[in-house]
Every structure is written in structure tokens, then in C-alpha cells.
Design a protein around this nucleic acid. Structure first.
Length: 304
RNA sequence: GGGGACGUAGCCAAGCGGAUUAAGGCGGCGGAUUGCAAAUCCGCUAUUCCUCGGUUCGAAUCCGGGCGUCCCCU
């Protein structure tokens, strides 16, 4: 028998946290956060983590699991989340997978096998090569060793070109080899996948309010604090929306007002990207706030 | 009342008679996304240049009237 898993996705500021807690209480569930930023310690305000009270009310997993200078990946996350889900279920509770990182959710619930871990040195080597020979030449190289993947990637997409090439060098096989036979079904668990989909104007309003609130709560101080601990402003975790702009403000590249405007704008765009992802994810149920109650009926059978 | 400047997409803005089928930026919208994903990347977004008329083979570009905005003088 497959383990039942309730998935709640949705764009940032759509109210996932609150809904998840509400449902977890009703279902006797526990929450597995599926958020690529809330995994970081110290980054609390800017990632809108659930409060300590909320976490006391319902156990939340996979929050605060690594330090800002550590790196998480979809593959690593997949393992961690699956372990959580199994443990929760073994405890006689219902796992709720909730968050805004669509790729992480997909990695957990679909049957995706990621290529084996690649030595950091290989990536460094490729980055060096890009610096020396230029991205277009490195892209041409990918075109030769893995034309299938290359044709799907933009010649400007440095991150994906690097990845495809590093997998090729590390394993001798094109990354497209590892993508074959991916099942688009949900073979792993018994999934009910909801996506919160508020009207665009309401969502944007909520984003504005949330960003203002983050500033009030001390996003600037939090950023300073992380920097003071010795973390470099250049590390991937600090490229996170919000922290990135505040760092620029602290460096004098923005005045505060512009920084805040920039965060709002970028958050809107981020929400849009999330919606694109969720909209095109298979077998999801997009629900408005009005439909939330009705949606719960579909999962009420799990109530104990 | 007199003089001057200007009026190009939601906003900013280039073009100043024919390589324009009207640059570019911002914003907006859509999409991709398989071990960095709150990252990264891609696409779309003015059949028309305030308006009416004129000059011309040809006008956003020149001329005139109208409307509007701004500045200066009185």
C-alpha cells in the first residue's frame, strides 16, 4: 500500500503555511517543508518561515537543516524528504508536503533518479573553461557530446550547460541518458496535490504587505547578522530574493526605498514563475480560497 | 495677453524626409525548468508616432490650423 501524502503547493505569500497547519491539525498530520530556502539556518524573516509557535503546534520537518554556506540539491532533498515521509507515516500520522519549490516537490513524489554525485573539482574546471574560452565555445562542446540536451538548453544558460557537461565528464554518459524513462505518474505515494491559486491582484497585494512586514520585523538586521557571522555575500544562499537586495543596499548600491521596491518586484516575478511551474505540473488541483473547504473534503477520509 | 519648448506603447525614451516591416530600457504577460531552482534561461508586448489638413513619388520626421502639457515674460 502506498503512503498517503497531501501536497500543498502555491506561490509565495499565498497562505500555504496557514492552510497546512489547519489541515495538519484536522488530519493529525505533520508537515514536511518543501522550500529550498527555509532549509537554511538564520534565514528566518526573509524566507517567511513558520513561527516557533506554529512549529510547536505542528511538527515541521526540513527547516533549519543546513548552514548558509552549505549547499542543498534536489537529489539530496529527495532522500531527506522521503525519509521524513516514511517516519511520519510509521508514527501513525499523515505527511503533508508543503512548499513553493516545485522542483523539490516533484523530486520527492515522482520517480526521478538523479545522476550520481559529481566531484566539485569537475564543476570548477568547467567554470574555469567558461571564463577562458567563453560560454558559446563551451556550449558548442556540449552540442558535440550531448546534442539531445544541448538542443533543449539555451546557449546562454550557463547553469544548465555546466551541469550537463559535468555529468558527462564525471560519468562518461550524457545527462540525457539519466533522464530516459521518467515516469510522469506518481508511483511513489498516494498523492493528492493542491495548489493555492489566489487571483493575481490579491496575490500581489499580499506580497507587498509581506515584504513591508519583513522589513519591519528586521530583515536588514537579520542580513547584517548573517554577514557578521562571516558568511560571504557571494554564497548561493545569500543570492536569495530579499537578502540579495538588502546586501546591495548595505553596500550602498541601492537606497532603502529602491531596495524594497526591487524586492517586491522580484517577488512578484518569482510568484509568476512558481505559478507557471505548478500550472504545468501534472495532476494538480488549482484551488481558490473559496474552494479550500471543498478541497478538504477530498482528503477528509484520512482523518483519524 | 506676448514669447518659447514639447506631444512616439502602461511608463521612460531613440529616431528629425526614403537601409524603419517605428531602436532601447522599465513594467506587464506567457513559457522552460530533472543534484545551484527565491537560482538560471527563453519568448511576446505601438499595422503606427496628439488631431485635422497641406507639401512631397515618399512624413513620426517639413508647413499650417486645432487641442493638450510645460517654461519664461507681462
Amino acid at each position: 500500500m502506498k503512503i498517503p501524502v497531501i501536497v500543498i503547493g502555491g506561490p509565495t505569500a499565498s497562505g500555504k503555511t496557514q492552510l497546512a497547519i489547519e489541515w495538519a491539525l484536522k488530519l493529525n498530520g505533520e508537515i514536511v517543508s518543501c522550500d529550498s530556502r527555509q532549509i537554511y539556518k538564520y534565514m528566518d524573516i526573509g524566507t517567511a518561515k513558520p513561527t516557533l509557535e506554529e512549529r510547536r503546534l505542528i511538527p515541521h520537518h526540513l527547516i533549519d537543516i543546513i548552514y548558509p554556506d552549505e549547499v542543498m540539491s534536489a537529489g539530496e532533498f529527495q532522500k531527506l524528504a522521503r525519509k521524513c515521509i516514511e517516519e511520519i507515516y510509521a508514527r501513525g500520522k499523515i505527511p503533508l508536503l508543503v512548499g513553493g519549490t516545485g522542483l523539490y516537490i516533484r523530486a520527492v513524489i515522482r520517480d526521478i533518479d538523479f545522476p550520481p554525485k559529481v566531484d566539485e573539482k569537475i564543476r570548477e574546471m568547467i567554470k574555469e573553461k567558461i571564463k577562458e574560452k567563453g560560454l558559446s565555445n563551451v556550449y558548442r562542446e556540449l552540442l558535440e557530446v550531448d546534442p539531445v540536451t544541448a538542443s533543449k538548453i539555451s546557449p546562454n544558460d550557463e547553469i544548465r550547460i555546466t551541469r550537463a557537461l559535468e555529468v558527462y565528464y564525471a560519468t562518461g554518459k550524457p545527462i540525457s541518458f539519466y533522464r530516459r524513462g521518467i515516469d510522469i505518474d506518481y508511483p511513489k505515494y498516494d498523492i493528492v496535490y493542491f495548489v493555492l491559486n489566489p487571483p493575481r491582484d490579491l496575490l500581489y497585494k499580499r506580497i507587498e504587505e509581506r515584504v513591508d512586514k519583513m522589513i519591519q520585523l528586521g530583515l536588514i538586521e537579520e542580513t547584517k547578522h548573517i554577514l557578521n557571522m562571516g558568511y560571504s555575500p557571494g554564497i548561493p544562499s545569500l543570492q536569495t530574493l530579499g537578502y540579495r537586495e538588502i546586501i546591495k543596499y548595505l553596500q550602498g548600491m541601492y537606497d532603502l526605498k529602491s531596495a524594497i521596491e526591487e524586492i517586491k518586484k522580484e517577488t512578484r516575478r518569482y510568484a509568476k514563475r512558481q505559478l507557471t511551474w505548478f500550472r504545468n505540473e501534472i495532476r494538480v488541483k488549482l484551488i481558490s480560497y473559496e474552494e479550500v473547504k471543498n478541497a478538504f473534503c477530498k482528503i477528509a477520509r484520512y482523518r483519524q
